[in-house]
Each structure stands twice: as C-alpha cells, then as structure tokens.
Design a protein around this nucleic acid. Sequence first.
DNA 1: ACCTGAACACCGTTCAAGT
DNA 2: ACCTGAACACCGTTCAAGT
Lengths: 226, 226
Amino acid sequence: MAAREQREIVSRRARPAKAALSQDVIVSAALDLLSQKGMEGLSLRKVAAALDTGPASLYVYVANLDELLSLVLDRALGEVERPNDPAGDWREQLKMLLRSYFTLLIDRPGLAQVALRTIPAGPHMADLTETMLALLTRGGVDVGRAAWALDLLLLHSAGLAAEQDNRRHTSMDTLMRRLKETTDSMPADTHPNIRAAGAELYTGTRERYEWALDALINGVIDTPRP
Amino acid sequence: MAAREQREIVSRRARPAKAALSQDVIVSAALDLLSQKGMEGLSLRKVAAALDTGPASLYVYVANLDELLSLVLDRALGEVERPNDPAGDWREQLKMLLRSYFTLLIDRPGLAQVALRTIPAGPHMADLTETMLALLTRGGVDVGRAAWALDLLLLHSAGLAAEQDNRRHTSMDTLMRRLKETTDSMPADTHPNIRAAGAELYTGTRERYEWALDALINGVIDTPRP
DNA sequence: ACCTGAACACCGTTCAAGT
DNA sequence: ACCTGAACACCGTTCAAGT
C-alpha cells in the first residue's frame, strides 16, 4: 500500500511554495481536519481552504464527498494493528485487532460515523478483512460464518465508538437527568427494571467493550449458520 | 403516551384552512418526509415548507434539528411490537421485538442513521428499554448485564439496518466489482480467505440477521460480566 | 490536463419586527 | 405568545473560462 500512495505523488517543482494537489494530499488534509475537529470540521470547502485552493479544484481527484470519506476511512484503517504470529492465540489476536480498530475510531472524532455510513473499499480494508477471516478460520469457524461474523464484529466496534462519540458532547449528568425525567413522569411501578438498572445503562465504557467482545466471539463460536 | 400527544393539540379555529402548528404536527410531518424520501429529504426547511410556513416558525416548538430527530425517532419507536404474554418464551419474544425494531428502521429509509446518531430519550424508548430488561431478566440475566446486553442488541439492529440502507443505493454488482478490483490488483496469494469467502461477504440479508440475533443472544447468555 | 471564479441550489439558526 | 421575512454563515456540485 505504501507503493500505491507513492505512485500518486506529483512533482513539486512547478509551485515551490504551495503543495502540489493530489488525491493523497487531499485525503491527508481531510483526515487531519476530521481528527482535530470532528465531523463538523470536515467539509470539501474546508479541505480546499486548508490546501489553499477553491472547492472546485478537488473534483479533479475525488468524485464527490462520499468518495473522499471512503478514502479517508481506508487511509485511517492502515493504522489498525494486525497480528503477525500465525501460531499465537487466535482469540486474543482477534480481540487485539478489534481493540485497535475501536481505539482508532474513538481517537478521531467523527470517523466512527464515517465507518457506519460509507461502504469501506480499499487496500487497507481488504487487508483487515483478510486478517480477520484468517483468524476466525483458525478458530474453527467456516468461511461463510466467518464472513458474517466479521461484519458483526466490525459493526459493533464502530457502533459503540459512534455512540460514545455522541455522548462525549453530552455529560453523564444530563443523560441521567433526562432518563429520570422520562421515567419519573410515569406511574411509579410501570418501569421497575429501568429503576433497578439505573446508571448501569450508561456506565462502564471500557469494561463494557471488553465484555461485549467476549460475548460476541462466544456467540459466533457456538452458533452455526442455519 | 397517547395522553402526552393529545395534550399538545391546539385549537384550529383561528386558521381553519391551515393546520395549527404544534410539536406534534411538526414531528409527524418530519417522520412522513423521512419515510418517503429518506435522510436527504428531511430538513428543517422542508418540514416548514410541508407545513406551509417558514423555517423560523419551528423554533417555537423545537430547540434545533437534533432535538427534532430525537423526537422523530421516539415517535417511530412507538410502533415497535412489544410482547404482552409474561408466560411466553422470553427468547422468542425478545427476537420478535428486535425483528420489529429492525423492520421499522429498514422501512423508513434514514431512520437507522438517526438511531445511530441521536441518543434516544422519550417515553417510547423508555417502554422499549423496560420491556427488554424484563425479558432478559426472565432469561436469567442479572440487571447489570441486561443493561449492557440491551445496548449490544439495539446497536446491532440499528447498525445492520443502516448498513443495508447504504447498500440500497449501491447495487450488488457494483459492490462485487469494487471488491474484485481491490483484491485483483494485489498479488494473487495474499488474500486467499477473501477469495474463498467471495459473495458471502455481502449476501444473505434476512438469514444473516436471524443468525446474528441467535449469536448475540447466545453470547449474552453465556458470558458473565467481569 | 489541471485549476479557478462565480454561480446554483441548497442548509441550520438568529433576530428584529410584526400580530 | 406566536409567527414571519430577511439575513448570516455556511454547504456540495457544476460549469464556463482560463492556463
């Protein structure tokens, strides 16, 4: 994949002060904006501004905003840590890979939303897919089930990351207050379980993720396809 | 909740030809637009236009777009079928409830995206939460684990619905072609598992969902919290 | 072939002015 | 209290005109 990126670099002699435009440069600028300011900080116009040009210029390298987002996601996916010891514990290796994916999405506000919206296609996504299929196969799961399991696992990490990204802006207090408001406005005994669960509904970020990882893998392991 | 909605109805004597504005009317119009035209068909300005008024008028009843989306989601959630036989099979009842939620999101293009973006708060969400907690408790799961499981299950249905909504616009052929393009452009033997999985990566909409439901519930059942 | 300015058709939100 | 027109500060995308 490094080769693929290098192939797009363009000579900078023509305009020494200004970075030459290329798909690569555009994707980098977009990912930077997304990482620093989240989804609201990313727009074609802002990417163009960051590159000191007009929005129309980007359309030479990128078909539209959707394609740009898809490219940004694939670029980011290159940083997911993939295990390389084919003799190691497949389960632990799978969990490490997913943790790395999750952390990546959490660290770049807005990227989780992108992951849920765009259909990922690109070299890094292909590598990730291949690695996960291999790990699941090593765990005794047949290829077909592994294909479905892969979707389940990636979807969960992206979904949870997006959820926590949303909640970053809303304080726990606000959440609990809103919950209290809606439940308190109802007859006292209609929602006993919500009352019993209480803060458990929202707390436990890290442990919750670890538990979910185990629950998902356990479920995949002992649920054959119909 | 019916009472809550009725309370907001306003006299229509003042303007016989034009429907009186209220939060209720606004949410209904927004849900209609979302159901018919998807996420792109929904905007504050279009809701206002549908109600034959200007966008500024809506701000009397709704704080901003986020709040409107949250209200729309909760309104739609009222249609989720909740079981009422406390002696029935909890597992089957839980699956039916989730299927109903999933179908609801699939039938209203864009709503799945809303479900993934907004933190649901409202009477219908409270009812849904309560019912799911009760079912899981009946299945022998303690309240704390049930709270986490609930999140896992709803997140999955919403995520899968959003994924399929995205793919509605992209044909299977396009997906497979793109996949082929990226994998074919690489050395032949680096991605054997992707080659083996092939179309399985994308196919099996309904069976895939049913399998995932079982896998998730199985995983929740035999994975205690740390 | 690449880049650009200007325009088109939209957004959410605010605010002063009306009733 | 409710409603509105007009404005503000943005969007993605297109296109004719330049180099």
